[in-house]
Simulated scan of single mutants.
Amino acid sequence: MGVLKYESEYTSTISAARLFKAFVLDGDNLIPKIAPQAIKHTEILEGDGGVGTVKKIHFADGARFKYVKHKIDALDKDNFTYSYTVIEGDALNEKIEKISYESKFIATADGGAIIKNTSKYHVVGEVEITEEQVKEGKERAFGLFKLLESYLHQNPDAYN
C-alpha cells in the first residue's frame, strides 16, 4: 500500500473561528441547507460528534457518489484543527483503501483566515491517481467552501 499526499490552501476574509464553527462544528446541519445539490444529509452512526465518531454523509440525488462514511480522527476546537478518514463508501474503490484529510484554520492579522488542507490517499499497490482526479476533487471542495464563505458574508451574525 502506498500513500499519495496532496495539499491545498484557501484564503478567506472570514475569521478562522467563524469558518471552523460553521464548516466543522455545524457543517452537518449547515451544508445541506446551503448546498442541497451536493449533500442531502449526514447521520451519526457512532459517537457523540467528537473524536471516534463515525458519520455517514448522503450525497444529493444525481451526484457522482451516493454516500461515504468517515471517522473523526482529531478535533481541536481551540486550535481550529480537524482530521477525519473516509473509511467506506462508493468514493472508495478497489484501488483506494481509505482517504485521510486534515484541515487547519489559521487566523490572519487582518481578521481573515488561511485554511490548509492535506489529503492522503491510501492506495492499494502501485495505483496512480491522476492530476485531473485531484483537480476535480479540489474544485468541488473549493466550490463548497465559496458557498459557505458567501453564506457567512450574507449572515454576519451567524457563528460568532
Results as ranks from 00 to 15, higher is better:
65 F>A: 03
34 I>R: 14
120 K>S: 14
40 K>S: 14
23 F>W: 13
70 H>F: 03
58 H>L: 09
53 T>K: 12
130 T>H: 15
73 D>R: 02
120 K>Q: 12
31 I>A: 07
95 K>S: 05
99 I>T: 04
71 K>N: 05
64 R>Q: 13
66 K>G: 00
49 G>K: 01
20 F>T: 03
78 D>T: 01
5 K>L: 07
120 K>M: 10
77 K>G: 14
97 E>G: 05
93 N>C: 09
70 H>V: 01
45 L>E: 11
98 K>Y: 00
10 Y>M: 01
69 K>Q: 09
57 I>M: 05
60 A>S: 07
109 A>R: 01
154 Q>I: 03
113 A>L: 07
135 K>T: 11
100 S>M: 04
43 E>S: 09
43 E>L: 02
54 V>A: 04
86 V>P: 07
83 S>Q: 00
79 N>P: 11
115 I>Q: 13
22 A>M: 02
37 Q>A: 15
48 D>M: 09
94 E>I: 12
147 L>M: 11
116 K>S: 12
4 L>K: 11
119 S>G: 14
156 P>V: 08
124 V>Y: 04
146 K>L: 09
12 S>W: 03
60 A>H: 01
105 F>Y: 15
61 D>I: 04
138 K>F: 15
142 F>H: 15
20 F>K: 04
111 G>E: 05
98 K>R: 12
142 F>D: 14
55 K>G: 00
1 M>D: 09
48 D>H: 10
20 F>Q: 06
37 Q>F: 14
120 K>A: 03
144 L>N: 02
103 S>L: 13
25 L>N: 08
51 V>C: 03
73 D>A: 02
20 F>V: 02
28 D>N: 08
142 F>M: 11
62 G>A: 00
98 K>W: 02
152 L>Q: 02
131 E>T: 10
139 E>P: 02
